[in-house]
Protein backbone atom coordinates (compact mmCIF):
# COMPACT_ATOMS: atom_id res chain seq x y z
CA UNK A 1 0.00 0.00 0.00
CA UNK A 2 1.40 3.36 -0.94
CA UNK A 3 0.88 6.41 1.26
CA UNK A 4 -1.73 7.66 -1.21
CA UNK A 5 -3.64 4.36 -1.03
CA UNK A 6 -3.62 4.50 2.74
CA UNK A 7 -5.04 7.99 2.74
CA UNK A 8 -7.64 6.92 0.18
CA UNK A 9 -8.52 3.94 2.38
CA UNK A 10 -9.53 6.11 5.30
CA UNK A 11 -10.95 9.02 3.34
CA UNK A 12 -13.20 6.86 1.16
CA UNK A 13 -16.41 5.09 2.16
CA UNK A 14 -16.16 1.29 2.20
CA UNK A 15 -19.44 1.02 0.33
CA UNK A 16 -20.91 3.64 -2.00
CA UNK A 17 -24.41 2.99 -3.27
CA UNK A 18 -25.97 5.23 -5.88
CA UNK A 19 -29.49 5.07 -7.34
CA UNK A 20 -29.94 1.35 -6.70
CA UNK A 21 -33.22 0.05 -8.12
CA UNK A 22 -34.73 -3.43 -8.32
CA UNK A 23 -38.16 -4.25 -9.78
CA UNK A 24 -40.12 -7.48 -9.74
CA UNK A 25 -42.00 -7.05 -13.00
CA UNK A 26 -44.16 -3.97 -12.50
CA UNK A 27 -43.73 -4.08 -8.71
CA UNK A 28 -40.97 -2.06 -7.06
CA UNK A 29 -38.59 -4.00 -4.82
CA UNK A 30 -36.48 -0.99 -3.96
CA UNK A 31 -35.99 2.25 -5.86
CA UNK A 32 -33.28 4.90 -6.16
CA UNK A 33 -31.45 3.99 -2.95
CA UNK A 34 -28.33 6.08 -2.32
CA UNK A 35 -26.01 5.98 0.68
CA UNK A 36 -22.38 5.68 1.81
CA UNK A 37 -21.10 3.29 4.47
CA UNK A 38 -17.82 4.20 6.17
CA UNK A 39 -15.29 1.74 7.61
CA UNK A 40 -16.41 0.65 11.08
CA UNK A 41 -19.89 2.07 10.64
CA UNK A 42 -23.15 0.26 11.37
CA UNK A 43 -26.08 1.26 9.17
CA UNK A 44 -29.57 0.21 10.24
CA UNK A 45 -32.37 -0.16 7.71
CA UNK A 46 -35.89 -0.04 9.15
CA UNK A 47 -39.36 -0.03 7.65
CA UNK A 48 -42.55 -2.06 7.72
CA UNK A 49 -42.87 -5.46 6.13
CA UNK A 50 -42.72 -5.23 2.34
CA UNK A 51 -40.87 -1.88 2.31
CA UNK A 52 -37.93 -3.36 0.36
CA UNK A 53 -35.35 -3.97 3.10
CA UNK A 54 -34.53 -7.56 2.13
CA UNK A 55 -34.52 -6.73 -1.57
CA UNK A 56 -32.02 -3.95 -1.00
CA UNK A 57 -29.79 -6.16 1.16
CA UNK A 58 -29.75 -9.02 -1.31
CA UNK A 59 -28.89 -6.65 -4.16
CA UNK A 60 -26.03 -5.19 -2.12
CA UNK A 61 -24.69 -8.65 -1.32
CA UNK A 62 -24.94 -9.75 -4.96
CA UNK A 63 -27.58 -12.43 -4.30
CA UNK A 64 -29.88 -10.60 -6.70
CA UNK A 65 -28.97 -8.39 -9.61
CA UNK A 66 -30.09 -4.75 -9.39
CA UNK A 67 -31.72 -3.27 -12.49
CA UNK A 68 -30.21 0.18 -12.15
CA UNK A 69 -27.64 2.03 -10.10
CA UNK A 70 -24.09 1.55 -8.93
CA UNK A 71 -22.35 -0.15 -6.01
CA UNK A 72 -18.71 0.58 -5.25
CA UNK A 73 -17.00 -1.61 -2.67
CA UNK A 74 -13.66 -0.17 -1.61
CA UNK A 75 -13.66 1.70 -4.91
CA UNK A 76 -14.42 -1.43 -6.99
CA UNK A 77 -17.52 -1.51 -9.18
CA UNK A 78 -19.42 -4.54 -7.84
CA UNK A 79 -22.04 -4.74 -10.60
CA UNK A 80 -19.34 -4.71 -13.30
CA UNK A 81 -17.39 -7.56 -11.66
CA UNK A 82 -17.34 -11.07 -13.02
CA UNK A 83 -19.05 -13.70 -10.90
CA UNK A 84 -15.74 -15.30 -9.86
CA UNK A 85 -14.56 -12.03 -8.37
CA UNK A 86 -17.90 -11.31 -6.70
CA UNK A 87 -18.11 -14.80 -5.18
CA UNK A 88 -14.53 -14.37 -4.05
CA UNK A 89 -15.56 -11.25 -2.12
CA UNK A 90 -18.53 -13.18 -0.76
CA UNK A 91 -16.27 -15.68 0.97
CA UNK A 92 -13.49 -13.35 2.10
CA UNK A 93 -14.38 -9.68 2.60
CA UNK A 94 -18.13 -10.02 2.99
CA UNK A 95 -20.45 -12.04 5.18
CA UNK A 96 -24.22 -12.51 5.21
CA UNK A 97 -26.25 -13.43 8.27
CA UNK A 98 -29.72 -14.70 7.36
CA UNK A 99 -32.80 -14.32 9.53
CA UNK A 100 -33.40 -18.05 9.44
CA UNK A 101 -30.21 -19.88 10.50
CA UNK A 102 -31.23 -22.80 8.27
CA UNK A 103 -30.60 -20.57 5.25
CA UNK A 104 -27.12 -19.72 6.43
CA UNK A 105 -25.93 -23.04 7.88
CA UNK A 106 -25.28 -26.47 6.45
CA UNK A 107 -27.63 -28.47 8.62
CA UNK A 108 -25.99 -31.82 7.76
CA UNK A 109 -22.48 -30.66 8.65
CA UNK A 110 -21.05 -30.43 12.19
CA UNK A 111 -20.64 -27.08 13.98
CA UNK A 112 -16.89 -27.28 13.41
CA UNK A 113 -17.33 -27.98 9.70
CA UNK A 114 -19.76 -25.09 9.40
CA UNK A 115 -17.30 -22.69 10.97
CA UNK A 116 -14.33 -24.11 9.06
CA UNK A 117 -15.93 -23.95 5.61
CA UNK A 118 -14.90 -20.39 4.77
CA UNK A 119 -11.34 -21.11 5.89
CA UNK A 120 -11.19 -24.18 3.64
CA UNK A 121 -12.77 -22.22 0.77
CA UNK A 122 -9.82 -19.87 0.78
CA UNK A 123 -7.24 -22.63 0.99
CA UNK A 124 -6.79 -23.69 4.65
CA UNK A 125 -5.40 -27.24 4.49
CA UNK A 126 -4.35 -27.99 8.06
CA UNK A 127 -7.06 -29.88 9.95
CA UNK A 128 -5.65 -29.10 13.39
CA UNK A 129 -5.45 -25.37 12.72
CA UNK A 130 -8.95 -25.25 11.21
CA UNK A 131 -10.28 -27.03 14.28
CA UNK A 132 -8.44 -24.73 16.68
CA UNK A 133 -9.87 -21.71 14.94
CA UNK A 134 -13.37 -23.21 14.96
CA UNK A 135 -13.07 -23.95 18.69
CA UNK A 136 -11.95 -20.38 19.32
CA UNK A 137 -14.92 -18.99 17.37
CA UNK A 138 -17.44 -21.25 19.07
CA UNK A 139 -16.11 -19.89 22.35
CA UNK A 140 -16.49 -16.31 21.14
CA UNK A 141 -20.17 -16.91 20.37
CA UNK A 142 -20.64 -18.74 23.69
CA UNK A 143 -21.00 -22.27 22.35
CA UNK A 144 -19.21 -24.89 24.48
CA UNK A 145 -16.19 -26.47 22.81
CA UNK A 146 -17.61 -29.97 23.34
CA UNK A 147 -20.44 -29.19 20.89
CA UNK A 148 -17.99 -28.84 17.99
CA UNK A 149 -18.87 -32.24 16.50
CA UNK A 150 -22.64 -31.83 16.89
CA UNK A 151 -24.84 -30.89 13.97
CA UNK A 152 -26.81 -27.62 14.12
CA UNK A 153 -30.07 -29.55 14.12
CA UNK A 154 -29.25 -30.49 17.72
CA UNK A 155 -28.96 -26.78 18.68
CA UNK A 156 -31.58 -24.34 19.96
CA UNK A 157 -32.63 -21.43 17.71
CA UNK A 158 -30.40 -18.97 19.57
CA UNK A 159 -27.40 -21.30 19.34
CA UNK A 160 -27.98 -21.85 15.64
CA UNK A 161 -27.97 -18.11 15.10
CA UNK A 162 -24.77 -17.73 17.09
CA UNK A 163 -23.22 -20.55 15.06
CA UNK A 164 -24.20 -18.76 11.87
CA UNK A 165 -22.48 -15.64 13.14
CA UNK A 166 -19.29 -17.57 13.98
CA UNK A 167 -19.35 -19.23 10.55
CA UNK A 168 -19.52 -15.80 8.94
CA UNK A 169 -16.99 -13.95 11.05
CA UNK A 170 -14.26 -16.64 11.13
CA UNK A 171 -12.66 -15.35 7.94
CA UNK A 172 -12.40 -11.78 9.28
CA UNK A 173 -14.76 -10.09 6.81
CA UNK A 174 -14.79 -6.30 6.60
CA UNK A 175 -18.43 -5.90 5.63
CA UNK A 176 -21.32 -7.86 7.15
CA UNK A 177 -24.91 -7.89 5.88
CA UNK A 178 -27.55 -8.99 8.38
CA UNK A 179 -31.21 -9.56 7.61
CA UNK A 180 -33.29 -9.55 10.82
CA UNK A 181 -30.63 -11.53 12.74
CA UNK A 182 -32.71 -11.53 15.92
CA UNK A 183 -35.99 -12.07 14.08
CA UNK A 184 -37.29 -15.52 14.97
CA UNK A 185 -35.99 -15.63 18.55
CA UNK A 186 -37.53 -15.32 22.03
CA UNK A 187 -37.16 -11.91 23.62
CA UNK A 188 -34.62 -13.02 26.27
CA UNK A 189 -32.56 -14.85 23.62
CA UNK A 190 -32.73 -11.75 21.41
CA UNK A 191 -31.24 -9.57 24.14
CA UNK A 192 -28.30 -11.90 24.66
CA UNK A 193 -27.63 -12.13 20.92
CA UNK A 194 -27.74 -8.36 20.60
CA UNK A 195 -25.16 -7.96 23.36
CA UNK A 196 -22.95 -10.49 21.65
CA UNK A 197 -23.30 -8.79 18.27
CA UNK A 198 -22.55 -5.40 19.72
CA UNK A 199 -19.35 -6.70 21.34
CA UNK A 200 -18.17 -8.42 18.15
CA UNK A 201 -18.89 -5.44 15.92
CA UNK A 202 -16.96 -3.17 18.26
CA UNK A 203 -14.02 -5.53 18.86
CA UNK A 204 -13.58 -6.42 15.18
CA UNK A 205 -14.28 -2.93 13.83
CA UNK A 206 -16.83 -4.38 11.40
CA UNK A 207 -18.81 -2.37 8.89
CA UNK A 208 -22.39 -3.58 8.99
CA UNK A 209 -25.63 -3.12 7.09
CA UNK A 210 -28.38 -4.49 9.31
CA UNK A 211 -32.02 -4.83 8.33
CA UNK A 212 -34.64 -5.01 11.05
CA UNK A 213 -38.15 -3.94 11.86
CA UNK A 214 -37.20 -3.68 15.54
CA UNK A 215 -36.26 -0.14 16.57
CA UNK A 216 -34.68 -1.41 19.79
CA UNK A 217 -32.15 -3.32 17.69
CA UNK A 218 -31.06 -0.27 15.73
CA UNK A 219 -31.04 1.91 18.84
CA UNK A 220 -28.47 -0.50 20.31
CA UNK A 221 -26.37 -1.29 17.25
CA UNK A 222 -26.65 1.28 14.49
CA UNK A 223 -24.71 4.52 14.17
CA UNK A 224 -26.87 5.65 11.30
CA UNK A 225 -30.37 4.82 10.20
CA UNK A 226 -32.23 4.62 6.92
CA UNK A 227 -36.04 4.50 6.93
CA UNK A 228 -37.72 2.76 3.98
CA UNK A 229 -41.29 2.90 2.76
CA UNK A 230 -42.67 1.30 -0.41
CA UNK A 231 -39.16 0.57 -1.69
CA UNK A 232 -37.85 4.11 -1.20
CA UNK A 233 -35.70 5.76 1.47
CA UNK A 234 -37.85 8.42 3.13
CA UNK A 235 -35.37 9.56 5.78
CA UNK A 236 -31.79 8.93 6.85
CA UNK A 237 -29.43 10.29 9.46
CA UNK A 238 -27.76 9.58 12.79
CA UNK A 239 -29.75 6.96 14.69
CA UNK A 240 -30.49 9.07 17.75
CA UNK A 241 -31.43 12.04 15.62
CA UNK A 242 -33.85 10.08 13.49
CA UNK A 243 -35.44 8.28 16.42
CA UNK A 244 -35.65 11.26 18.76
CA UNK A 245 -36.56 13.91 16.20
CA UNK A 246 -38.11 12.19 13.18
CA UNK A 247 -38.78 14.54 10.27
CA UNK A 248 -40.82 12.40 7.89
CA UNK A 249 -44.41 11.68 8.82
CA UNK A 250 -43.91 7.95 8.23
CA UNK A 251 -40.90 7.87 10.57
CA UNK A 252 -42.95 9.69 13.19
CA UNK A 253 -45.58 6.97 12.94
CA UNK A 254 -42.90 4.26 13.18
CA UNK A 255 -41.32 5.82 16.24
CA UNK A 256 -44.58 6.45 18.03
CA UNK A 257 -45.36 2.76 17.51
CA UNK A 258 -48.66 3.67 15.94
CA UNK A 259 -47.65 1.45 13.03
CA UNK A 260 -47.69 -2.25 13.76
CA UNK A 261 -44.42 -3.21 12.05
Amino acid sequence: MTAMDRIAAVTRPLLQVDGLTKRYGARIGCADVTFDLWPGEVLGIVGESGSGKSTLLSCLAGHQRADLGRILYDGRDVLAMGETERRGLGRTDWAFVHQNPRDGLRMGVTAGGNVGERLMAVGARHYGQIRDKATDWLDRVEIAADRIDDRPSAFSGGMQQRLQIARNLVSSPRLVFMDEPTGGLDVSVQARLLDLLRGLVRDLGLSVVIVTHDLAVVRLLAHRLMVMKSGRVVEQGLTDQVLDDPQHAYTQLLVSSVLQV
Binding site: T110, G112, G113, Y127
Partner: peptide
Protein backbone atom coordinates in the same frame (compact mmCIF):
# COMPACT_ATOMS: atom_id res chain seq x y z
CA UNK B 1 -16.77 -23.24 -13.27
CA UNK B 2 -15.56 -20.98 -10.47
CA UNK B 3 -13.20 -23.59 -8.93
CA UNK B 4 -15.19 -23.17 -5.75
CA UNK B 5 -14.11 -26.43 -4.10
CA UNK B 6 -14.01 -25.58 -0.38
CA UNK B 7 -16.90 -27.95 0.16
CA UNK B 8 -14.78 -30.98 -0.86
CA UNK B 9 -12.54 -30.31 2.10
CA UNK B 10 -15.55 -29.83 4.37
CA UNK B 11 -16.43 -33.43 3.52
CA UNK B 12 -12.93 -34.63 4.42
CA UNK B 13 -13.04 -32.48 7.60
CA UNK B 14 -16.30 -34.18 8.59
CA UNK B 15 -14.70 -37.57 8.01
CA UNK B 16 -11.84 -36.81 10.38
CA UNK B 17 -14.14 -35.16 12.96
CA UNK B 18 -16.34 -38.27 13.05
Amino acid sequence: ELEDYGLMHVKLYEDIAR
